[in-house]
Measured scan of single mutants.
Amino acid sequence: RQGFVPAAYVKKLDSGTGKELVLALYDYQEKSPREVTMKKGDILTLLNSTNKDWWKVEVN
């Protein structure tokens, strides 16, 4: 499932696989259909980080 999360809630990881991955630093509950819920410690695939406030991710 793809959607947006606050950029301040995730940290980029060095995956070494060519995929950009991020680590969820905090729990986040989606507040609109365009967002996704994540739990602290989740590893997500980063799809787009051009917006400084909201990053598009895919929940694996």
Score class of each variant (00 low, 15 high):
25 L>A: 04
38 M>F: 08
31 K>S: 09
17 T>F: 13
30 E>Q: 13
29 Q>G: 07
54 W>H: 03
18 G>R: 10
54 W>F: 07
42 D>R: 02
54 W>R: 03
14 D>S: 12
53 D>S: 11
55 W>C: 02
16 G>F: 12
6 P>I: 04
30 E>L: 08
21 L>K: 10
24 A>Y: 01
44 L>W: 03
58 E>V: 07
5 V>Q: 01
26 Y>W: 09
40 K>N: 04
15 S>I: 11
56 K>H: 10
41 G>M: 03
15 S>G: 13
31 K>E: 08
22 V>G: 13
8 A>F: 08
52 K>Q: 12
38 M>S: 00
25 L>I: 10
2 Q>W: 08
42 D>G: 03
1 R>L: 07
44 L>S: 02
24 A>P: 00
24 A>I: 03
28 Y>W: 10
54 W>I: 03
56 K>V: 14
4 F>R: 03
30 E>N: 07
9 Y>A: 13
38 M>C: 05
15 S>N: 14
20 E>Q: 15
18 G>V: 10
25 L>N: 03
59 V>E: 09
6 P>L: 05
19 K>H: 13
31 K>H: 09
40 K>P: 03
51 N>C: 10
25 L>S: 03
40 K>T: 07
3 G>L: 05
28 Y>R: 02
9 Y>T: 07
23 L>A: 05
7 A>C: 07
46 L>N: 01
15 S>A: 11
1 R>C: 08
34 R>I: 11
60 N>K: 11
34 R>C: 15
6 P>N: 03
21 L>H: 09
33 P>T: 09
19 K>S: 10
12 K>Q: 08
51 N>W: 07
11 K>E: 14
27 D>L: 02
10 V>D: 02
19 K>A: 11
28 Y>I: 01
16 G>T: 15
6 P>C: 06
13 L>W: 08
8 A>M: 12
9 Y>W: 07
59 V>G: 07
23 L>R: 09
9 Y>Q: 07
36 V>Q: 03
20 E>Y: 10
42 D>V: 04
14 D>R: 10
46 L>A: 02
3 G>R: 03
44 L>C: 08
19 K>Y: 10
7 A>Q: 05
4 F>S: 03
15 S>F: 12
17 T>G: 15
41 G>W: 05
38 M>V: 10
39 K>W: 10
22 V>L: 09
30 E>A: 15
47 L>H: 04
52 K>S: 12
27 D>R: 03
7 A>D: 02
57 V>H: 00
47 L>C: 06
60 N>W: 12
23 L>Y: 10
40 K>E: 07
14 D>F: 12
53 D>K: 15
60 N>Q: 13
23 L>K: 08
27 D>Y: 04
5 V>S: 00
59 V>D: 06
7 A>M: 04
41 G>V: 02
56 K>N: 06
23 L>V: 14
58 E>M: 10
56 K>A: 08
39 K>H: 12
12 K>R: 13
12 K>C: 09
7 A>H: 03
51 N>F: 08
11 K>A: 10
15 S>V: 13
11 K>G: 06
29 Q>L: 13
5 V>K: 00
17 T>S: 12
4 F>H: 05
29 Q>M: 12
8 A>D: 11
22 V>A: 10
49 S>E: 13
51 N>R: 09
10 V>H: 01
45 T>H: 12
51 N>L: 09
55 W>N: 01
51 N>P: 05
34 R>L: 14
35 E>W: 03
28 Y>Q: 01
42 D>E: 10
48 N>E: 15
7 A>G: 05
22 V>W: 08
56 K>D: 03
54 W>T: 02
40 K>C: 07
43 I>N: 03
26 Y>T: 09
53 D>I: 15
19 K>C: 13
57 V>A: 01
46 L>P: 01
13 L>P: 01
32 S>Y: 06
25 L>Y: 04
17 T>A: 14
42 D>A: 07
47 L>V: 11
59 V>C: 10
29 Q>N: 14
13 L>H: 05
50 T>Q: 13
31 K>W: 04
6 P>A: 02
13 L>S: 04
3 G>C: 04
49 S>V: 07
5 V>L: 03
25 L>W: 03
14 D>W: 11
21 L>G: 03
19 K>G: 09
26 Y>V: 11
49 S>I: 07
15 S>P: 10
8 A>C: 13
14 D>Q: 11
22 V>Y: 10
43 I>T: 06
2 Q>C: 11
50 T>I: 08
45 T>M: 10
56 K>I: 14
29 Q>Y: 15
56 K>G: 05
19 K>T: 11
44 L>H: 03
8 A>R: 15
57 V>I: 07
39 K>R: 12
32 S>W: 07
24 A>T: 04
27 D>F: 04
53 D>A: 11
44 L>T: 01
23 L>I: 15
33 P>S: 11
50 T>N: 14
40 K>M: 08
23 L>Q: 13
5 V>Y: 00
50 T>R: 10
26 Y>L: 10
51 N>D: 15
22 V>Q: 00
52 K>N: 12
31 K>L: 09
36 V>E: 01
42 D>Y: 05
32 S>M: 07
41 G>Y: 05
46 L>Q: 01
45 T>C: 09
35 E>M: 05
38 M>E: 00
45 T>I: 15
44 L>F: 10
7 A>P: 06
14 D>P: 15
27 D>H: 05
3 G>W: 04
14 D>M: 11
20 E>V: 15
47 L>A: 03
21 L>M: 11
7 A>K: 07
38 M>R: 00
2 Q>F: 07
21 L>S: 07
47 L>R: 03
32 S>R: 08
1 R>H: 07
60 N>V: 12
34 R>T: 12
10 V>N: 00
7 A>N: 03
54 W>G: 00
1 R>D: 04
36 V>G: 02
43 I>F: 05
5 V>C: 04
22 V>T: 02
4 F>I: 06
34 R>W: 15
40 K>R: 11
25 L>V: 07
25 L>Q: 04
29 Q>A: 12
6 P>Q: 02
27 D>Q: 03
28 Y>C: 02
49 S>Y: 08
19 K>M: 11
27 D>K: 02
53 D>V: 14
4 F>M: 09
16 G>C: 15
15 S>D: 13
25 L>R: 04
22 V>K: 00
50 T>Y: 09
10 V>Q: 01
33 P>N: 11
26 Y>G: 06
55 W>L: 05
46 L>D: 00
19 K>D: 09
32 S>E: 08
30 E>M: 12
58 E>F: 05
48 N>L: 08
